[in-house]
Design a protein around this nucleic acid. Structure first.
Length: 594
RNA sequence: GGUCCGGUAGCUCAGUUGAAUAGAGCAACUGCCUUCUAAGCAGUAGGUCAUUGGUUUGAAUCCAAUCCGGAUCACCA
């Protein structure tokens, strides 16, 4: 359990002072307290303008009076103040900062919160089993994994889950193509990774389909009709019916090909550090949700049209009418999702359910939550759509038809190559064994990739330019990793340095580092509140940058005095711990050397 | 057409519960390795915060309109 952050400590003191001085109550939320800009003296700044009207005093005199009162009443906390325009800049005592340092520098779990007793399910990845994972999936997977870790850090129980879209017409397409073109080939016989192997047949299907449609059109058929009449398409539709009927040879092929895909996915998941506690398969859940339709009809939430189809009217909510059951009695996507949500809750009693799904499904998720709320489901309010933007190329969206999709395995390999080249160029780890090198390249490669995808606000779409490989300098994973390695090197060299009691005043760069570190627990809280791992990436970068400035300016091992050496060793250790922790929440390892 | 999201430096992005002169990184240019890892540090240059109007002591941030880009509104998944 960590202590309260300084800002939340200061707030009640200020509202107290305001009450004493002016006899008026102010809510803590009404206070604006920012970090003091570096060009001014002070650590934190109270913005005074908001009181001016209510208290009928000039900002300058308000600042003077409040500053006077704070330093007078709490001299152990506030050691100085100054007023510039409408801003009261407060200097927090070095004792406070050193206290934080003494308490936390050796604590690798700084920022970790006590258990809340809440259980949260995070559903992420959720691939189709007809093609391999691509860069878009990686953004999803890294986000999902990271938000799960951030939830844990904030004291929640987390269940990572995945719904595998393992059935449907698109799966049948690769099955048909395999029957037509494979001659019994398998991943084992060809040496191709299972998910890529199946993906090739999905592509082959589309090629063949296109060819057949063109042939029919050339023979005088209309395009629309040709698209329905093409033999491969008809065969695929028949296969879907056979699958639903449970025809043994179709089921066997389906299982066989899905197994290949899962074996491929497992390799990728393992490589990138993704894991799940609960897998759901659409083939098991696609019939769920039908019981909701009956319930909903009874309670009047749904209504039946003359043709037998069932609908919900959401026009009052500014949405549309939405189908929940086809006229032939089969369920649609949203019905399945209702059923799956119910099944999750039945098993786990989760307080919250986070769905990591791209923003193209914003409308769908809005509808899902609304329907469940109207049905009065206890878990409806806990549904949160962690919506993220697409990863695009400079030329626009990735399109599988145009072959511009960035394959997940390829990009990982590419990053490993770059990591290897850079590392060898620098030649700092020539004494590493082969396994150590391989681990280091992986750490750096995945660090660069994950940081690249997580440093951007999830809500926003992002651009990836394959021409410029992901950078290793500046606002990047390797930069932060490098800072960690550098610190560890110093700490190794320090060995068992005897620490002495520290009373010395802090130098500006020492304090700046400490002030920033003291904010870390607040950052993890914000990250979970906003469902936004990028806050941690930005924080880790700023911390690393601040440390590097400090490091260049002040020697740790050759510090001026034993006290300075002690403080700096502690600062260094705490920085390394926080970097490790923050990067860990992003799924990024940090090396001892690089 | 309805709804929603976005437009900030040449590029990629922060900042958007209103607050001091709008910040980083990359790219460009200048310096810094005889001392703890130069994957680093310091500095220069780069902005009509899409446009216009409004609210406010104060607007990149709130409101309205307009322009541009995207998503979505399937008895698809």
């Amino acid at each position: 359990m960590s202590e309260m952050n300084i800002v939340s400590k200061i707030k009640p003191l200020i509202t107290g002072i305001l009450n004493e001085l002016y006899g008026q109550e102010f809510a803590e939320d009404s206070l604006t307290i920012n970090s003091t800009k570096p060009e001014f003296e002070g650590d934190y700044t109270l913005v005074l303008f908001s009181f001016v009207k209510q208290l009928k005093k000039s900002p300058e005199s308000l600042g003077e009076e409040i500053g006077q009162a704070l330093t007078g009443k709490y001299p152990e906390l506030f050691t100085a103040y100054n007023v510039i325009k409408g801003f009261l800049n407060l200097t927090i005592s070095d004792h406070y900062w050193l206290d934080v340092l003494q308490r936390e520098y050796h604590n690798p779990a700084f920022g970790k919160k006590a258990a809340t007793g809440k259980t949260v399910m995070v559903e992420y990845s959720s691939p189709n089993t007809n093609k391999p994972l691509h860069l878009g999936h990686l953004r999803n997977i890294f986000l999902g994994w990271s938000i799960a870790e951030i939830l844990k850090e904030n004291g929640h129980e987390v269940i990572k889950s995945c719904i595998v879209n393992d059935r449907g017409i698109h799966i049948c397409k690769s099955m048909i193509a395999w029957q037509l073109f494979a001659n019994g080939a398998t991943p084992a016989s060809t040496g191709v990774k299972g998910d890529h192997f199946v993906g090739e047949y999905y592509v082959k299907f589309n090629d063949e389909y296109k060819r057949q449609v063109e042939e029919l059109v050339a023979g005088g058929m209309k395009k629309e009709e040709a698209e329905k009449e093409a033999p491969v398409m008809k065969a695929t539709q028949q296969m879907l019916l056979d699958w639903e009927a449970g025809k043994p040879e179709v089921m066997e092929l389906w299982k066989k090909m899905n197994t290949w895909v899962y074996e491929g996915f497992d390799v990728t998941y393992h490589r990138i550090g993704a894991d799940f506690q609960k897998m759901y398969y659409e083939s098991n859940t696609y019939l769920l949700g039908k019981q909701f339709v009956e319930d909903g009809l009874q309670s009047g939430v749904f209504y039946r049209k003359e043709d037998g189809s069932v609908w919900i009217d959401l026009t009052a909510e500014g949405l549309d009418e939405k189908l929940v059951l086809r006229k032939d009695g089969t369920s649609v996507y949203i019905t399945q999702d209702m059923g799956l949500a119910d099944q999750k809750y039945a098993e786990f009693r989760n307080d919250q359910s986070i769905y990591v799904i791209a923003d193209e499904q914003n409308y769908h998720m809005k509808v899902l939550k609304l329907i469940l709320q109207k049905l009065g489901k206890p878990y409806a309010d806990g549904i949160y759509h962690l919506s993220y933007g697409m990863v695009e190329l400079p030329s626009g969206r990735m399109k599988s038809r145009e072959g511009t999709v960035v394959d997940a395995d390829d990009i990982v390999e590419e990053m490993v190559k770059v990591a290897k080249n850079k590392t060898e160029e620098l030649g700092k780890v020539k004494d590493f064994t082969e396994p150590e090198l391989i681990e280091l390249f992986d750490t750096i490669a995945l660090g660069a990739l994950k940081f690249f995808l997580l440093r951007v606000d999830p809500k926003k779409k992002m651009i990836f330019n394959p021409e410029e490989s992901i950078d290793f300098h500046g606002f990047t994973g390797p930069f932060v990793q490098y800072t960690h390695a550098r610190i560890r090197s110093v700490l190794r060299k320090a060995g068992e340095t005897a620490l002495v009691p520290v009373t010395a005043p802090l130098l500006p760069l020492e304090k700046e580092l400490l002030v920033l570190m003291e904010q870390y627990p607040v950052v993890t809280e914000q990250a979970v509140a906003e469902h936004n791992p990028s806050l941690l990436a930005i924080y880790a970068f700023n911390l690393a940058k601040t440390f590097n400035t400090f490091y260049t300016e002040h020697s740790v091992l050759n510090a001026e005095t034993p006290e300075k050496k002690t403080v700096r060793l502690q600062l260094a250790e705490m920085t390394a711990n926080i970097i490790r922790s923050a990067m860990g929440l992003l799924g990024i390892r940090v090396p001892e050397r690089m």
